[in-house]
Nucleic acid binder design. Structure first.
Length: 325
DNA sequence: AAGGGCCTCAACCGCGAGGTT
DNA sequence: TAACCTCGCGGTTGAGGCCCT
């Protein structure tokens, strides 16, 4: 059975909406609500697909939408939530009244991702690039380690240039409002300090790795039994891990210890509140995603995760108290 | 002033989940 | 229970504006 198209493509207009179309849609929805998007364009006299109408309404015409620049606090919320839930834009947007998932996604892709990358933080894992390289190095056999610098220069060329030349990138929100109460600035500055601290470490580590091929005896990823992690701490002092909350070992990776980027990202940087939190959140996501229909529904608008008392959270509570739309 | 490259963001696409018949 | 329908999500695209040379 093939998928039925959401509308007849032939009789449907596409592309930019005109003010007339906006008016028709807005006034129809004001009178009749948003039940049955398939019928709305027909009844409103629009030659548009129902899906297109829904998108136009939810992303642009809805009266409660905020248009304009993202505030510092909003950016901070996005970065922190992204470090936990990843590209779950609807969940993130649910914490930002007046912002849509499309807004958040666009802002992330066009601004925040670049800001983090430019600061030496991997926007996927929210770890400093240098830290990621150190992790990679601990999992490689000596000949591979020897190629790490080359690979790093290939993969993170621009980033490495920034790191190795200590060229700072002047981001507006990095310096503005850098007051004690401003947690965005604090978050950014802490990442900057981590970066500075690890620049030297990564340089030393890479050069040692290439000079001392026997330095790393293990070529395995982390070992849940803990035996390998002992090797890491014993033999990989060339890559001192910069963040206090991060360790290679079962206690940090949580019960499953899957070592996935997601798991690891929870345990690094200033957003880390411990593996227990990670486990709880993942459990929560699991519960709400599947087993319980009501919970699953709440997950979609992001309410339960952040209202749950069982989850510790290092965001200022004010940032998470926004009511769901 | 021109034009080429970059950036932004509105809009589209395909898919999965959940609801309805 | 299966088939169908609707909605919402995340990834991607492309038009238009901006910036730089």
């Amino acid at each position: 059975m093939g998928r039925i198209p959401c509308c007849e493509k032939d009789n449907v207009k596409r592309g930019q909406w005109t003010p007339e179309e906006d008016n028709k849609l807005s006034s129809y929805i004001a009178q009749h609500g948003t039940r049955n998007w398939r019928l709305i364009p027909k009844n409103a006299g629009l030659q548009r697909c129902g899906k297109s109408c829904r998108l136009r309404w939810t992303n642009y015409l809805r009266p409660d939408l905020k248009h304009g620049q993202f505030s510092d606090a909003e950016e901070q919320t996005i970065v922190k939530l992204h470090s936990v839930v990843g590209n779950r834009w609807s969940i993130i947007a649910a914490q930002l009244p007046g912002r849509t998932d499309n807004d958040v996604k666009n802002h992330w892709n066009t601004k925040l991702k670049k800001k983090l990358s430019g600061m030496g933080i991997d926007p996927v894992t929210h770890k400093p690039f240098s830290h990621l390289m150190a992790e990679i190095a601990t999992t490689l056999a000596p000949p591979q380690v020897a190629h790490l610098a080359e690979a790093a220069l290939g993969c993170f060329k621009d980033e490495m240039l920034h790191l190795l030349t200590k060229r700072r990138i002047d981001f507006q929100f990095q310096h503005s409002n850098a007051t004690p109460g401003n947690s965005t600035a604090t978050y950014i500055n802490s990442k900057q300090e981590e970066k500075d601290d690890t620049i030297e470490k990564i340089k030393i580590g890479l050069s040692r790795a290439m000079q001392e091929p026997d330095m790393l005896t293990s070529n395995k990823p982390w070992d849940p039994t803990g035996a390998t992690s002992a090797n890491f701490t014993g033999n990989c002092s060339a890559f001192p891990l910069p963040m206090s909350g991060f360790q290679y070992g079962p206690s940090t990776f949580g019960n499953e210890g899957d070592g996935s980027p997601w798991s690891q990202s929870m345990c690094t940087g200033s957003t880390c509140t411990g593996a227990d939190q990670q486990g709880q959140l993942h459990d929560k996501l699991g519960e709400q995603n599947g087993e319980e229909s009501e919970g699953g529904k709440e997950l979609r608008n992001g309410s339960n995760i952040f209202n749950s008392d069982s989850i510790l959270w290092d965001l200022p509570s004010d940032d998470l108290m926004n009511p769901m739309v």
